[in-house]
Amino acid sequence: MNQDYCCPISGSPFTHVHWPDHHPVGLVMDGVAIPGLGEQIYQWGGGQPFNAECLYVATRWEAVSDLSPWLVWLSGPEDPVLEGFLEQGAVKEQGYLLVSATDRATCTRWMRSHLQVEMSPGCDELVRIAHPALARTVIGGNLPRFPTRAVDRLIVPDRISEQWHLIEPPAVQSGSTVDQPGKMMAAPDLSSAFEAFDRRKDALQIWNSLEQSVRNQLGGPELRDAYPALGKTLEEARGSGCNSLREVMQFLFATLPQRADSNPVTETAPHWIKDEQ
């Protein structure tokens, strides 16, 4: 997999990446991160026609469609839905872009085949496939190996580096036209991707709760500068037996220089950490 920085996340990636002439471009958005996503897409569309798919519809997960990822097929780099997403959702990692290697219907079926994973025989779990950090590994990391080449490349926002990532396989491969099975199967590399996603999510949740003075001690004030130290501290905390975010926060403050005349754990830990059982 080739993965390169493309351009700052504050702008459109299509100022640096050519809009493909013969391949559909889709915007995948996370229904967990954007409440009322279907209505939001409609508002961004401004009454103009658009082609959108709620990916849980027509699957066994249709009952929880309020949390479903959506796939919107874009009309061009100035598509109003894309413009709305770029203004509000990209910097929050609420979705990503994909360039299809096939037609829209086939690519949509392929995306639906990656909504769930069988972690053990008869035990299926939903995959948050619309989150860009997870898509980078689950989809982007496997582009050369998928039997069906439905996705040509991904364009993914990264909050930590504040850049768009362009993810594409090392070489174009001729894939099979056979449909993927109805779900993914658990494998060691897939489990590692899920664990890395959970660790990253915890790190960002803790970062959001930290005061500026603590961020500076970690190498901030920008997340991209502080994240290596933050990630290392969290790994050490987990290795020391810290299992909850509250315990991780306490470990973090114990390893940082103490601020005079203050109790950082009490002052900085937000309500969801202090009240955690």
Rank of each mutant, 00 (worst) to 15 (best):
M1S: 07
P8K: 03
I9P: 02
F14P: 14
T15N: 10
H18Q: 05
D21I: 02
H22T: 11
H23W: 08
V25H: 15
L27W: 13
L27V: 15
L27T: 15
L27K: 11
G31Y: 14
V32L: 12
V32E: 11
L37A: 04
L37W: 15
L37E: 07
E39I: 15
E39K: 09
E39A: 14
Q40W: 07
Y42D: 13
Y42C: 09
Q43L: 12
W44N: 07
G45N: 09
G47D: 04
P49M: 12
N51M: 05
C54Q: 12
A58L: 10
R60I: 05
A63W: 00
P69C: 03
W70T: 00
W70G: 00
W73P: 06
D79Q: 10
E83L: 05
F85D: 01
L86H: 10
G89W: 02
S100I: 07
A101W: 00
D103N: 05
R104T: 11
C107N: 05
C107R: 05
T108D: 01
R109D: 07
R112A: 00
H114I: 01
H114G: 01
Q116G: 00
M119F: 01
P121K: 02
G122C: 00
C123T: 08
C123W: 06
D124S: 02
V127R: 04
R128C: 03
R128M: 02
H131W: 00
A133V: 01
L134V: 01
V138P: 02
L143R: 08
T148E: 04
R149V: 10
R149S: 00
D152F: 07
R153N: 05
V156T: 15
R159A: 05
R159H: 12
I160F: 01
I160Q: 02
E162T: 03
Q163H: 10
W164C: 01
H165N: 01
I167Y: 13
I167H: 10
I167E: 10
I167V: 09
P169E: 07
V172L: 13
V172T: 13
V172S: 11
T177H: 07
V178I: 05
D179N: 11
D179E: 12
G182D: 10
A187S: 10
P188Y: 06
S191W: 14
A196S: 11
D198I: 04
K201C: 07
D202K: 09
A203S: 04
L204V: 14
L204C: 12
W207K: 14
N208L: 06
N208Y: 11
E211S: 12
R215M: 09
R215G: 15
P221T: 14
E222Y: 15
E222G: 13
L223P: 14
R224D: 14
R224I: 06
Y227K: 10
P228R: 13
A229I: 11
A229C: 12
L230W: 15
T233V: 01
L234F: 14
L234Q: 14
E235G: 10
E236H: 15
G239C: 09
S240L: 14
S244F: 04
S244K: 09
R246P: 02
F251S: 13
F253N: 01
A254Y: 00
A254S: 14
T255H: 14
L256C: 08
Q258L: 03
D261R: 09
N263C: 13
P264R: 07
P264W: 05
T266E: 15
T266P: 08
W272G: 10
I273M: 08
E276H: 13
